[in-house]
Lab assay of single mutants.
Amino acid sequence: MQAFVKTLTGKTITLEVEPSDTIENVKAKIQDKEGIPPDQQRLIFAGKQLEDGRTLSDYNIQKESTLHLVLR
């Protein structure tokens, strides 16, 4: 499924993900596309910070959801 990641600069990245993907996995995909190390990434969805060990389905993130990427 497709999900979108919006950065603070307003850029939107499109990712191909599965509901079973972990947040860690998603961060690795963002690193592949953008070169941002996962340890600098914080992903926010519905106002919550997403934890590495959880999956997209844990957070009820469905296709075409938009996550927000904040860098630390």
Rank of each mutant, 00 (worst) to 15 (best):
M1Y: 12
Q2N: 10
Q2Y: 14
Q2I: 15
A3D: 01
V5M: 02
K6D: 04
T7R: 06
T7G: 06
L8P: 15
L8W: 15
L8F: 13
L8M: 14
T9L: 10
G10M: 04
G10F: 04
G10L: 03
G10H: 04
K11D: 07
K11L: 10
K11Q: 09
T12C: 11
T12A: 04
T12E: 05
T12R: 08
I13E: 01
I13L: 09
I13H: 03
T14F: 09
T14Y: 09
T14K: 09
L15D: 00
L15K: 00
L15W: 01
L15Y: 02
L15E: 00
L15T: 01
E16Q: 13
E16R: 10
E16N: 12
E16F: 14
E16W: 15
E16A: 10
E16Y: 13
V17Q: 00
V17F: 05
V17R: 00
V17A: 03
E18W: 13
E18P: 03
E18T: 14
E18H: 15
P19E: 08
P19W: 09
P19C: 07
S20F: 11
S20E: 11
S20C: 09
D21G: 03
T22H: 04
T22V: 04
T22P: 05
I23Q: 01
I23N: 01
I23C: 02
I23M: 03
I23Y: 01
E24D: 07
E24A: 15
E24H: 11
E24S: 13
E24C: 08
N25A: 14
N25Q: 14
V26R: 00
V26D: 00
V26E: 00
K27Q: 02
K27G: 01
K27M: 06
K27V: 02
A28R: 15
A28E: 10
A28C: 09
A28Y: 13
K29P: 00
K29V: 04
K29Q: 10
I30P: 00
I30N: 01
Q31R: 13
Q31P: 01
D32F: 12
D32A: 14
D32Y: 10
D32T: 11
D32M: 14
D32N: 11
K33R: 10
E34D: 05
E34T: 15
E34W: 15
E34F: 11
E34R: 05
G35K: 06
G35P: 03
G35M: 05
G35F: 04
I36A: 03
I36V: 08
I36M: 05
P37Y: 06
P37G: 05
P38T: 15
P38A: 15
P38W: 11
P38R: 13
P38L: 13
D39A: 13
D39I: 10
D39Y: 13
D39F: 11
Q40M: 12
Q40C: 11
Q40V: 11
Q41S: 04
Q41E: 01
Q41W: 06
R42F: 14
L43V: 04
L43M: 03
L43R: 00
L43W: 01
I44C: 12
I44Q: 06
I44A: 05
F45H: 07
F45L: 06
F45R: 03
A46E: 14
A46C: 10
A46R: 15
A46T: 05
A46Y: 09
G47Y: 05
G47K: 04
G47A: 04
G47Q: 04
G47H: 05
G47R: 04
G47C: 07
K48N: 10
K48R: 12
K48S: 08
Q49N: 11
L50M: 09
L50Y: 01
E51W: 06
E51V: 09
E51I: 09
E51L: 11
E51R: 09
D52N: 11
D52G: 06
D52F: 04
G53R: 09
G53C: 07
R54V: 06
R54T: 07
R54Y: 13
R54S: 07
R54N: 10
R54K: 14
T55A: 06
L56H: 00
L56C: 02
L56T: 02
S57W: 09
S57D: 08
S57Q: 13
D58A: 05
D58E: 11
D58W: 12
D58Y: 15
N60I: 06
N60G: 13
N60T: 05
N60W: 05
N60R: 07
I61L: 07
I61D: 03
I61V: 09
Q62T: 14
Q62I: 12
K63G: 15
K63S: 15
K63W: 10
K63N: 15
E64M: 11
E64S: 10
S65C: 07
T66W: 09
L67P: 03
L67I: 13
L67S: 01
L67Y: 03
L67M: 09
H68P: 02
L69C: 02
L69T: 01
L69M: 08
L69W: 01
L69K: 00
V70N: 05
V70K: 08
V70R: 11
V70H: 10
V70E: 12
L71W: 09
L71Y: 09
L71Q: 08
L71F: 08
R72G: 10
R72I: 14
R72H: 12
R72K: 14
R72W: 12
